[in-house]
Design a protein around this nucleic acid. Structure first.
Lengths: 216, 216
DNA sequence: CTTTATGGCTACCGGCGAGTATATCGCGGC
DNA sequence: GCCGCGATATACTCGCCGGTAGCCATAAAG
């Protein structure tokens, strides 16, 4: 069997960007797909789902409608992807605190900070809006399941707080609703460039929830 | 001048319902108009604004599309009326506490109870949803103005609380946002027949806001 | 008895927008 | 050098739905 001479590693010529390896191409596609989703999310947030046509999204990206359909199956899928992208950010927040030694109240605060950032992001509107209408039964079910996971995560933190003594004993369900409501509502009033960053908003909210309104 | 003989009051014959006085007719029209608005509100809440056609609303009322247009100018107007109807309920709550001797925290609680009821009503969805999109610039402006009134009302109560000592000194703006967010979010999860009435939900929320999360 | 107003209907228009059939162009693999 | 495929474009279809024109029935008004 003829063995090939050992070859020296040769530095890539400056033409590298002109030809792409298969996985470069794949990454490229993924980037474009993301651009589609991000652009859609911005449109949805600004004008709403129904007031945004696929043509609108395409125009912003300087392409035409069929190109969009090359990256997503249909409009509903597009909304779902926006939703999922945003939600993942919150999921990650829960991952991050997994190993933390901090008490439950502190961990809740960390999660809420990330939560606020996600809600204030371009995907925030979709996260809050999706499921309610506009989604097929199957999709809606998926979305509800994902949202429920978040909800359960928050409730768990509240219950853990009751155990480790960092949080007053209270109804986890209703408390989680109040907390999530305050947070989700950010999507309706927050605009980038305001006086507070999303993280700061979460900070203030949590301070309020911690200390309560009552004078003492 | 020939004076007519004094006439005995004659009991209305059972045919009374067959002929209507002008103001009976007017009231009738008003009732029908309200039915249109209420039905629309229910549709919007269930399926969303864009997934509800005027034909849908008409069908439920056993009439046809042009009949709907006999009571409202157009679809946008219909959404606006739904919004206004719901909002009025909250406005009334502020009226009610005008003469109250209770301290600010108690007054805030009263308003929030009514607020929760309004949000949980058929009009809740429209109140929360309207303005954001789907409304012309002019309408949107009106809606924003009305919403702002509510917001200012809440902030005022919070500030008054800081003065009369019933509420801890805190940022009225951010506190009002948190409060309104928790409340508005009810529209997304509340369904009639749950274990808590809207008023009870408000009660629990306020308890949470009053006492805070922190163990002490 | 006629007139007019009111409330409703049938039947239509027109536009928008989701989604598609089909062509093109260029690159990478055989 | 040709084939195939990925990416994009042009140019459509088609259904839905907001809104309207115009007719009809009933009943109050004169």
């Amino acid at each position: 069997m003829a063995t090939r001479k050992p070859q020296k590693k040769i530095a890539a010529a400056p033409t590298t960007e002109l030809w792409q390896t298969p996985d470069e191409r794949a990454r490229d596609r993924e980037k474009k797909r993301y651009a589609v989703i991000l652009t859609a999310a911005r449109c949805f947030r600004e004008r709403g789902y129904h007031n945004t046509s696929i043509d609108d999204v395409a125009r912003i990206l300087n392409v035409t409608k069929p190109t969009i359909y090359h990256y997503v199956e249909n409009k509903e899928q597009l909304l779902f992807e926006c939703f999922r992208t945003g939600l993942n950010q919150i999921m990650e927040a829960f991952e991050e605190i997994k190993g933390s030694q901090a008490n439950a109240l502190e961990r809740l605060t960390m999660v809420m900070r990330r939560y606020a950032e996600a809600i204030a992001s371009d995907f925030g509107w979709c996260m809050v809006q999706a499921e309610n209408q506009d989604l097929s039964a199957a999709m809606s079910k998926k979305v509800r399941a994902l949202k429920s996971e978040i909800d359960q995560g928050i409730r768990r933190l509240i219950k853990e707080g009751a155990l480790d003594g960092s949080i007053r004993k209270c109804d986890a369900k209703i408390t989680a609703f109040a907390l999530a409501g305050a947070m989700n509502w950010i999507a309706y009033w927050y605009r980038p460039g305001g006086s507070l960053t999303p993280s700061q908003i979460a900070e203030r909210f949590l301070e309020l929830f911690r200390l309560g309104l009552e004078q003492r």
